[in-house]
Write a protein that binds this DNA or RNA. Sequence first.
DNA 1: GCAAAAGTGTTAGGTGTACACCCATGA
DNA 2: TCATGGGTGTACACCTAACACTTTTGC
Lengths: 229, 229
Amino acid sequence: MTKFYLQEDKLYVSVDCIILGFKGNAINVLIIKRKFEPLKGERSLMGGFVRRNENIEDTVSRVVYDYTGIQNVYMEQVGAYGDVGRDIGERVVSIVYYALIDMELFDEKLEKENNAEWVDINNVGQLILDHNRFLDDTLKLMKRRTATRPVGFNLLPEKFTLPQLQLLYEAIYQRPLDKRNFRKKLFDMDILEKLDEKDKQLSRKGAYYYRFNKGKYDRLLEDGDYFSL
Amino acid sequence: MTKFYLQEDKLYVSVDCIILGFKGNAINVLIIKRKFEPLKGERSLMGGFVRRNENIEDTVSRVVYDYTGIQNVYMEQVGAYGDVGRDIGERVVSIVYYALIDMELFDEKLEKENNAEWVDINNVGQLILDHNRFLDDTLKLMKRRTATRPVGFNLLPEKFTLPQLQLLYEAIYQRPLDKRNFRKKLFDMDILEKLDEKDKQLSRKGAYYYRFNKGKYDRLLEDGDYFSL
DNA sequence: GCAAAAGTGTTAGGTGTACACCCATGA
DNA sequence: TCATGGGTGTACACCTAACACTTTTGC
C-alpha cells in the first residue's frame, strides 16, 4: 500500500459497546469491572481496540461475542467520541455502538468469567470516564429508534407473546400503554404472525405466541419512519 | 502521560465535512477538486486529519474555517466510517460532520482559491471514495433534524422573511408547503420576533423581516422532539 | 390601474386516546 | 367457583391538511 499520509498523526481507535437485553419488565445493560489498568476494578462498558485490519463493526461483533457468546446481533452506531482528555490513559477515539440481544441466548458462564452483571438501565451507577454519557446518548437513540423502526423485537426471543411485547415497549417508553390501542396498531401494521402455541407461564389462560412476518418487517425497514407503537 | 496501550494499533483519523448553505430556493453543498494524491483533481468533500492534540470538533471547525472563512458554525456528527478498504491511500477512520452556514457570510475569495464550488444537493455528481454515501447519510439526518429541531435557521441570515423561511423548508422537505398552515405553526410556537423592517427585493409589497426569539429557541432545544414545521 | 407577491381563517377528515367488560383456565 | 391474566370495540378530542380572497406597492 502506498504511503500518502506519513506526516499525519495516528490515534488509538476503540469501540465501546452498550449491550442491552430485556428481562422481566426492565431493560438491562451489561456492565463489567475493568480488568486492566488504568482504572482496573472500576465499573465500565465493554470495549476493545480497533485493529489495523479489522472493520469497526467486526470489532464490535468480537467484543459482543466475547462478553455474551452471541453472534449476528442487531447493532447501531451511536457516535464517535474523541476529545483529547476523554481517556486518562492515552488519546483514544472511541466509537460507541449499542447492541440489542435476546437475553435467553446469553451465555451465563461468561457473567462470572468477565466480572459482568446485568443492571437495570434506570439504575446504573457511576461508570468510568465518559461511559455514563455514552449510555445516556445510547438510551436516547435506542428509544427513538425502537419507537420508529421495528427493531425492538431483537430484544425478545423468536417467539413471544403480546403481553411480553407490551411490557417491552412500556419499559422503552417508561409509561404504561393501553392494551387495546397497542394491539390495534400492531395488527394494523400486519407484521406479526400468530402461532398456534400458547405460553402458559404467566397465566392460566395462556397467551398466544407470535413471530415476525419477515417480509413486512423488511419493507418497513427500507426507509422512512413509519413504524410507531 | 503513562503508556498503557502500547501493544494496540493506531490509525489515521480524519474528519470529512459536509458544508451546507441555502441560496435562492435550493440547498447547496460545497465541493472541491482535491489538491493532493491520491485522487488528485477528483471531486471530494472537505476533510482534514485529526491531530494528536486536537479535539475532533476543533478539526471540523478548522476545516470549515479554511474553506468558508466562517467560525462558530452549527455542526452535528453524522457518524464514523472506518471499513478497512474505504480509503485507497491507507486505513483511515473518517468521522463525518455536517455544518449549516449562512451563505451570506461565505468568503467568496476562497471559492477559487480552493477549487471549490457550491452545488445543489439534488445534483451532486460522483464524489471520491465513499463520499456520496457520507452525503446521503448526512442529508437524511439533516432533514430529520431540521424537521424536529429549530436548527434550520442556521442556514439563513440573522434577519429573514417568512417567504424565505418557507422556501428553505420546501427545499428541505422537497415538497411545496401551504403558506397559511406553515405560518400558523410558526406563530403557535412563538419563536419568532417580528421586526419593523421590510425586505423589498422580491416583491413590491415587501415582506417583514423576522429574527429568532432566542429564549424560546433554547427551551425548544433542550429535549424532546417538539419542533415541527 | 395592474401585476406580483404578502398576508390572513375556516372546515372536514383522519389519527390518537380514553375507557370496561367477557373469556379461558388451573387450582 | 373463583381468581388471574388474556383478549376484544367504540366514542370523543385533537391535530393535520385542504382551500380563496384581500392587501400593498412600484411601475
